[in-house]
Design a protein around this nucleic acid. Structure first.
Lengths: 240, 240
DNA sequence: AACAGCAACTGGTCTAGACAACCACTAATA
DNA sequence: TATTAGTGGTTGTCTAGACCAGTTGCTGTT
């Protein structure tokens, strides 16, 4: 059950196991978990290590603690939904659709005024421009254009884009993606969008601009997306 | 600096101190904190206790860690901005505009299927239907329709609506508003919207549906809004 | 000038205990 | 019967170490 020689830390292994048990329904909502000491004894590890695992799950909203009583399974219903989804892939999967992409173009171009301003780089600095059609269950959903500083992310190729762009970035850049701002507006499909999305002229389009930043505030990417209004609604949940 | 006999745990005392130093500007954003070992030595406590304090601050977004380098102050500025703005009034004020309203109609009607489903009430139960034009600096921005259960909120009048609807609700209902879901989509202006918003035919419209819930999950209101696409963009910030 | 290797840092993980605070339950007591 | 005092469970806090794994800068070699 626990592999002490695994590169995955012990506490992470415990987290995964408990999460699995919750998702499988082995642990029902508001039912008590085994106590920390029981876990420690069972896995022959220190209680502090168990606490680290449980603390993380409490912070993620899977469990809650009550001093003197025990640790219990939270009911997830709401926060399960979608809080911080950033990628098209995650978004579509959450909707039960199968996401894919078709690369339209991939170039390095000099930054124009708008791009330079969004990415906080100088005018004419080299940027990747990646144009893709995003599909869900093989139906075109959106036309997406990504801009990223070529000086920040080096060695990007078509192959990498087609595999997993964001995985490459996370590995390449030491700092992880931290936050994003999204701006949504309504507009009418341009000629380009009509062609690639296979929609009638003058169709409504949901236009989304996303700027993603690293933890130190460096802009990582600037993305423009044109979503088909007949197929895509954007939903957010605001808490508190 | 640290009182070991205080009822407030040591880690909580450290948290407060670091928070204070950040707020006072003693610790600038992205500057390194003293190392965990330094804290432990200075306060003559165990390093694990220091880690507990720092972990909490990392989870709250005040700090971030980098293995091998140190612990740094995060910049909070963004999430300070707008997290959960729900009301048109707040939204417009945040944009530096002067919000106002023009009441178009105010009636009590029997809930249709859609309304009953959104408000979790029975079909034909009485609901308020409030139609308003929302203006910013006296320019029409949106056409808004609010539905609320008349059995939940009693004694609503035109006068109250024109004063402050949400203030009345907060005072009337014991439970406060807790969370909201918003759905955004792009569409084309209907005849009604063209008339009231004074826009050309076939103009793009940003359509927003908002459902607000009380802390116990009771639906409070169901709001449909049609925003002029030429004047309104919707912005959100997603963290972590 | 470029490089490799080392040393001294950093945070990450983990141990094997300890005592306190709190809770539920039971048994003894007024 | 109602109250109280235990008792054995839980989580909460804390210690004083250990070793691992990254990062950085220095130092000597090439």
């Amino acid at each position: 059950m626990i592999d002490k020689s695994s590169p995955l830390p012990i506490y992470a292994q415990i987290e995964e196991q408990i999460k699995r048990q919750i998702e499988n329904g082995e642990f029902q909502a508001h039912h008590a978990l085994p106590s920390e000491r029981e876990y420690a004894e069972q896995f022959e590890i220190s209680r502090m290590t168990v606490r680290q695992a449980i603390n993380n799950l409490v912070n993620d909203g899977y469990l809650y603690r009550q001093k003197g009583r025990g640790t219990f399974v939270a009911d997830k219903k709401l926060e399960q939904q979608l809080n911080g989804l950033t990628s098209f892939t995650e978004d579509m999967k959450a909707r039960g659709l199968n996401p894919s992409s078709k690369l339209l173009s991939f170039e390095i171009i000099p930054a124009n005024k708008k791009i330079a301003s969004e990415l906080h780089i100088s005018l004419y600095a080299p940027v990747y421009e990646i144009k893709r059609i995003r599909l869900a269950d093989d139906v075109p959903m959106a036309l997406e254009t990504v801009y990223m500083s070529a000086n920040l992310i080096k060695g990007l190729t078509e192959e990498i884009i087609n595999l997993s762009l964001y995985q490459y970035i996370e590995n390449y850049v030491k700092l992880k993606m931290d936050y994003a701002t999204q701006t949504l507006e309504s507009s009418i499909a341009s000629e380009l969008e009509v062609t690639h999305l296979a929609i009638p002229k003058h169709s409504p389009i949901l236009f989304i601009q996303r700027n993603t930043f690293l933890i130190d505030g460096t802009p990582l990417e600037y993305v423009k997306s044109a979503y088909r209004a007949d197929r895509y609604k954007f939903t957010i949940t605001i808490t508190r």
